[in-house]
Simulated assay, not measured.
Amino acid sequence: MKKIFLFVWMGLCAIAGVQAQEQHDGLPGVPQTEAYVVTPVDTTSGVTVRKVSFLRSNQIVLVGNLFLPKNFDGSQRYPAILCIHPAGSVKEQSAGLYAYRLAENGFVTLAFDAAYAGESGGTPHWSEAPYERVEDIRYAVDYLVTLPFVDEHRIGALGLCAGGGYVIATAPTERRIRAVAGVSAADIGAANRESWLRGRTVEEQIKLLEDVSAQRTREARGAELMKVYMCPEPTEETAPSFREGYEYYRTSRAWHPRADNFYLRRSQATKMAFSAIENSYLLTQPVLLVVGDKADSEWQTTRFYQALPGKDKEVFVVAGYSHIDLYDKPGAVGPAVQKLTDFFKRTLQ
């Protein structure tokens, strides 16, 4: 029943998005953002959503869904949580599900498409640019602090998979983020340098970067930008998370028309240049890391935890579930959301 509701909810969001784009707020291609109009998503839960957009650097427009809790009162001030989607994902998938569930528990939440993804602007699309993802988060905080019903001193951030790494990379120097959480958190830089299951040698990393550089040369001379699947069709050598990722992103389980699972081949270099923990010594805010005990990415959760200097840090293990299970499986999402709710209520009080 929950799965059916999720797809109905995703469909309603998509319909609302088409309708919103028929009007503009003064910027070409920007959805309507009139004062706090709310659109019902699920009348039984009382959560409402409105389509929003905000401008970041380079005149790139970011588009999101803002979730408002039951009995929302615009004269009150609420704690707010950013929900950052995985690489290759969009706001209607796992980030939107967590945003919705946290809004059910009393938070104002925002799930938005990163630059170069989904409904957001930026060209070329399909770019996975980690340091720009960090800037997206900063501008999302800028947007939240303009809302009169958001308490600027009670803003948290949650990221899933690479989104978790992006949040951890942002929070040390973005002190408006008061609490940080990661679900199946991953450092996209480490995962691409070392490979998802680790073991990629320095020589192999250099060879990979040489191949990417050669592709950029071909593109500079007029070749079409090369796109590759984030989760290609599985083989015997495919890591469990990518095998499950194929089933999540590329089948009816969570497929979305604005998330075709491609990324630009040239993005391999920008991903390998990134580190989510390079400034982690400054991350003194409370941190919660949620991971499944069957996740093949557990080494990244351990790596994050060990890199964090603060004392208010915790790993919460969801028994019986894998990395991708935490994206949408009710048995995994339920305890994860409850733990996140308790964490954010404590740290954003």
Rank of each mutant, 00 (worst) to 15 (best):
E236N: 13
E236H: 09
E236Y: 09
E237C: 11
T238Y: 14
A239K: 04
A239C: 06
P240W: 07
S241V: 07
E244I: 05
Y246K: 07
Y246V: 07
E247W: 08
E247T: 14
Y248N: 10
Y248P: 07
Y249D: 06
Y249K: 09
R250T: 02
H256M: 06
P257V: 14
R258A: 10
N261A: 15
N261W: 12
L264N: 14
S267R: 09
Q268C: 04
T270M: 05
T270R: 03
T270Y: 08
T270G: 03
S275T: 04
S275K: 10
S275M: 00
A276E: 07
A276V: 03
E278D: 04
E278N: 02
N279M: 04
S280A: 15
Y281K: 15
L283C: 14
L283V: 04
T284H: 15
T284M: 11
T284D: 11
Q285W: 09
L288N: 01
L289M: 14
V291F: 01
V291S: 10
G292Y: 00
D293S: 08
D293H: 12
S297I: 05
W299I: 09
T302I: 01
T302E: 13
R303T: 13
R303P: 04
F304Q: 03
A307I: 04
L308C: 11
G310C: 08
G310W: 08
K311H: 11
K311L: 03
K313P: 08
E314Y: 00
